[in-house]
Design a protein around this nucleic acid. Structure first.
Lengths: 154, 154
DNA sequence: TGAGTTATGTAATAATATAACATTTCTTGG
DNA sequence: CCAAGAAATGTTATATTATTACATAACTCA
């Protein structure tokens, strides 16, 4: 799974970054928040709310609001994104810098890659400016096949 | 509502176009399908599945599968789009030509404008090509304020 | 006409998400 | 330290969105 890549490292790094960001902003990175973020990062795809709920384990009383509130917190603080086309959640890959980001979702391996290239953001800005539309939030999700999953599919 | 624009005309035109398209493709544009498409076009915003269900009226037995199947048919044939960020459905403005289209959603008046500009499509193609990602379907939904709803908001 | 196909009806339930209120835990000024 | 307020979590109930599975009806066309 995931080639030779030692994924535990990603998880650890994401948690450390999140912890640091919360410290800097005076937010509480509680056990529950840490646990949910860990679960989300524990695969390269996206996590569904009710799967998180099932896997919380430990001391956490698993009821939907527990998870949805935690997801809200993580989203508000830019640590997690919701993928609307999947009703699922992914960890944010660059929780500090990005403004507009978008997602490449591989329908074969289910990995979700977050992209923050400026070219797309520029094109979006141009387009909305042309229509005199003032954007607040952009959902850009592209489903298809990643490089690795195109082999043998022509 | 909707300024001086006589909206019944939009609805009628959309229905006529849909009917023609179905004829050309050997598809059955049944009473139910016509009715659902009418309801969807009866406002400029988007329609929710369960609201359609409530408003079917007439002879239609209103159970969820009735509506979802009809929405599936309309989507498959490019007559309707789902707006994932709203869990809602809009009529397609150009059911014949478009490939990649995207949506400007005004959070003040709830109108949804469908755009099919090539500039965005080009930017998307460039971006995915650069990552060697083969796109099958793109969700691009921009929520914000339309021209008319920016007055007085600075 | 009637056999096969397509569309719709119906019942049950799955999957996703929120509201409202209770309790616990943390923080911080005194 | 300690109590009061704030923030987080627990709990119950329910709302919203969507699908599965099977039955019936309506169309099509040989």
């Amino acid at each position: 799974m995931y080639g030779s890549h030692e994924h535990a490292h990603c998880v650890e790094e994401a948690i450390n970054t999140a912890s640091r960001i919360c410290d800097e902003r005076g937010l509480r990175f509680t056990g529950l928040r840490r646990r949910v973020l860990e679960l989300i990062w524990e695969n390269h795809g996206s996590a569904k709310a009710y799967d998180l709920l099932e896997n919380l384990g430990g001391d956490y009383s698993a009821k939907p609001p527990t998870v949805y509130r935690t997801l809200d917190f993580l989203q508000e603080n830019g640590l997690v994104h919701k993928i609307n086309s999947l009703n699922a959640y992914v960890g944010c890959s660059h929780p500090l810098q990005h403004k507009d980001c978008f997602f490449l979702i591989c329908s074969a391996c289910n990995e979700v890659e977050e992209c923050c290239g400026t070219a797309m953001a520029d094109a979006l800005r141009d387009m909305t400016a042309k229509q005199d539309f003032k954007p607040d939030h952009t959902t850009l999700e592209i489903e298809g096949r990643c490089h690795d999953c195109q082999a043998g599919v022509q």
